[in-house]
């Protein structure tokens, strides 16, 4: 049971690290933002396994939900500006 849990967590950790590298390196901005949101969502699973459900709830609501949404609003507003410049 213990080893199964460990293997699952290590796979999760590897996925999170790959997402982080993708978020930093990706040329596509929406992909980078989604990768960052995925890191927050998987981090909330990690918090739940580390026996802290309070932190897991906060991370899922704020880190994965609201921050990702905020980045998308800013992306739309800055993209608008860029297309107006090109015209």
């Amino acid at each position: 049971m213990e080893t199964f849990e460990l293997i699952t967590l290590i796979i999760l950790a590897v996925v999170m690290i790959i997402s982080a590298v993708m978020a930093v390196l990706s040329k596509e901005m929406p992909l980078a933002i989604l990768a960052s949101g995925a890191i927050s969502l998987l981090a909330s699973i990690f918090f739940l396994v580390l026996a802290s459900p309070d932190v897991a709830m906060t991370e899922a609501a704020i880190g994965a939900g609201l921050t990702t949404f905020l980045f998308f609003i800013i992306l739309r507003k800055t993209d608008q500006n860029k297309t107006e410049n090109e015209k």
Partner: peptide, 17 residues
Amino acid sequence: TPGGGFQGGAIIGTAIT
């Protein structure tokens, strides 16, 4: 239970969003 003002406030903020 797990939860509280910060989590509930964030959920209300999501509803307004």
